[in-house]
Amino acid sequence: MDIDCLNSRMIDILTEISNIGSGNAVTALANMLSKKVSMTVPRVRIMEFKDVAEILGGEEELVVGIYLELKDDVTGNIMFILDKSSALNLTNMLLNRKDHELDEIAISALSEVGNIISSFYVNSLSMLTGLKITVSVPSLAVDMAGAILSVPAIQFGLIADQVLFIETVFEEGENLVRGNLFLIPEMDSFEKILSKLGVL
């Protein structure tokens, strides 16, 4: 299946299941923080490689990326990206402290947050589709947005000249934490998901 073959009905279905999945993920985050967290409707985006880094405000933007691989029936990855101040604010809220740097405890807390919200996301996808999906342990990097996004982009580079991903932007009630959650299944997995849902 090629990216060009996706029609608007398929995109609607992908948006809807991501809406449910990221809704659960964001609820989990809100519970962890005991704060209100809102999110946008997920967007299915198809982009040229050269434009990919711009979605996070430029290639050189310093971000924290938490990356998990999807395994079993669905392969691909899930990425949770925060700008640096959001990452700091998030860990300060979780660890109930102030003005710390991104130290070892913060990094470990962020990895765990990534782990929990990705698991919620993936579990709802799994329930909706009946497909078995598991996630790997999280890996975290603090670096330029372009460098971090090159990892999923390369994965798509193997099969296409564009990258397809589903993006949800979420924001904590007081605007201290803002992040992007990307679901990036491989094309074969899109096919599986769509056929399980009866649209292919």
Partner: peptide, 22 residues
């Protein structure tokens, strides 16, 4: 950007930002 190439003559400069595994 990614998956891109270009050339330039002096006194030009070519820049690519945020090179990761590429």
């Amino acid at each position: 950007g990614m998956a891109d190439l270009n050339t330039v003559k002096a006194p030009g400069i070519l820049t690519t930002l945020g090179l990761g595994s590429c």
